[in-house]
Design a protein around this nucleic acid. Structure first.
Lengths: 145, 145
DNA sequence: ATTCGTGCAAACCATTTGCAAGAGA
DNA sequence: TCTCTTGCAAATGGTTTGCACGAAT
């Protein structure tokens, strides 16, 4: 009952492209890593697939909306999107790099509201937060004292 | 009374780096373009500065928080950040590419609330929305009919 | 005068592309 | 079988780096 894999295959078919081993492999890599990965890292974790194909596939996935790409500092990170991952955002600790997933309905509501105020029908959105986690705040305070 | 330029110079000094012609030029380019630019475009619009220096400067700016970088599709775009630009976000039309700046206090409040709920002290955030603008919705509807 | 930053040119490396062979429908 | 994809390898082009000169403090 691997529903995700099925949905994935179906999605590809619906878009008239084939369900290949390479594509499944990359989908699998993304599925296993439960955090956004750099392109290079995706390639490294999918050694059975040629680097060139990884890029071609990633571009396809992005076009079909299978993946989402966000910027962290200077590097783009990719992860599975909506249909395959519960909708969420991230908050990153600027000191220790800890990443926590965020899920919040109010936030989603406000985003929709804001979009409609500008007369847009919201389809996608990227929200990435960063700050200091509790641990690092504690440490910093102690040091400062 | 070019306050921005002064703040910029001050910020560099405070961080112990020099205020150079190249840095001013790039700052100026960013300031003039009132929208996010690709790295290459920044270089193109600042022909007096060597490409290598543009990258070095951009990295410096990002590190000092002078600029902010966001992802659009596959490309990173950079623009001036907080101190030099009124805080805002963008919403992009997926059909015609129109970009509108967003400013909304409720949104900011909710973000802070969400962060604190996860025990983070929010310092920065990226919010990028995309959807269909009113014009394109109208066109699409007409075509469909 | 010293230190920091820049330009130039070469080096790197991630990403892209052409093409023939192989996998998918 | 016929078309879509992949792998391989070469080409590309954005980004980085070393070094000597020139600018900033």
């Amino acid at each position: 009952m691997n529903t995700d894999a099925d949905n994935f295959a179906q999605l590809l078919k619906n878009n008239g492209v084939s369900v290949t081993t390479a594509r499944r492999a990359i989908f699998h890599t993304l599925r296993d890593a439960d955090e956004p990965l750099k392109n290079g890292e995706i390639a490294r974790r999918t050694p059975t697939v040629d680097r060139a194909s990884v890029y071609r596939t990633l571009e396809l996935f992005a076009r079909l909306g299978i993946t989402e790409t966000v910027m962290r500092g200077w590097t783009p990170y990719t992860e599975l999107a909506e249909p395959f991952t519960p909708h969420h955002h991230h908050i990153i600790c600027e000191n220790c790099g800890k990443v926590v997933e965020i899920e919040n309905d109010t936030l989603e509501d406000v985003l929709n509201l804001v979009a409609s105020r500008y007369d847009f029908a919201l389809q996608k959105h990227v929200v990435e937060l960063s700050g200091l986690c509790a641990d690092c705040r504690a440490k910093t305070t102690r040091q400062a004292a």
